[in-house]
Amino acid sequence: MTNTDLTTVGGLTQALEAGNRRALARVISHIENNTDLALPLLAALYPRSGKAHIIGVTGAPGTGKSTLVNQLAGVYRQRNLTVGVIAIDPTSPFSGGALLGDRVRMRDLAGDPGVFIRSMATRGSLGGLAQATADVIMVLDAAGFDRIIIETVGVGQSEVEIASAAYTTLVVEAPGMGDEVQAIKAGILEIADIFAVNKADREGVDRTVMALKMMLNLGVPEKFQVMHHGRMLPVNLPETENLPQGWTPPVLKTVAISGEGAEELTEAIENHRLYLEQSGGRILRDRLRAATELRMIMRDYLLETLLARTDAAVLEEMVEAVARREIDPYTAVRHLVNEKAV
């Protein structure tokens, strides 16, 4: 190897720019571990980012997300596009450890210098996960990957937050994984740009596809009118204000294990990418994301700053007072903040 210095911000960013994979891996670790180098690295790399198309892949455990990511990355590689993958698995709340097993399904990508896979544990950080993921996405983006695929754990609110970091969100469903009410509960109908009904060689796939399509049509009522016996007719209505033209999430069938439908799925992602670019949706999403990000970072920063200058004993007193019901938590916070703000 070269004798590049991978212990300094300058050395790391330079090596990363030159395509040094070890440097890339080290930078990601600095960010994950929130070391002293994390902030300077983020600051140095941020201006280099913003070129990649970011794809979020979410869906319940067992629907075949990893295998599908393996296929998608494969199709992109055939098209000579480089791919960064972030595979997220949960941290055990009991031990703080994690078993990150997504690489097992991505072995086709091993040995390809155009692919970089990084497994990330959720590390039990509330909301912080979304930020750490966004930072790692940014690093892969700055490293020059054309497409970045994030595979999420598949449950809960953090999915929605992580999805907000993606330009195209792909929701993976599988036949027999629960009825459409589950889909509504999970809030995935709102975040999905594309649906893949995976394991399409299984029984019940058409029912799942139909259920999803029905739900989607309810979500965009202006586009269809329900006729007698549930027959639906498309209706042309004036465009909605913000989006020049609506995007109706396509529902595609895939068999990830054989690669069936992977080509069509990639095509749908690319269509969505073009749609975002032409409709101005990408700029809109970038602004929204920047706004969310700034608010999140401000919140964390303010909290840290405030905690740092709050007397631990005073804080402890307040905790006791609230626990004894002598003061309500909202008033307590106002006391803590105002007292120290002067």
Binding site: F94, L100, G101, R103, V104, I117, S119
Partner: peptide
């Protein structure tokens, strides 16, 4: 090892030395 608090990346069977080192 996960239960001992480590982050374990499991790569599965039939890995070549190249694949292991790159992972």
């Amino acid at each position: 090892l996960r239960d001992s608090g480590y982050e374990v990346i499991y790569t599965g069977i039939r890995q070549t030395p190249d694949m292991i080192a790159e992972a």
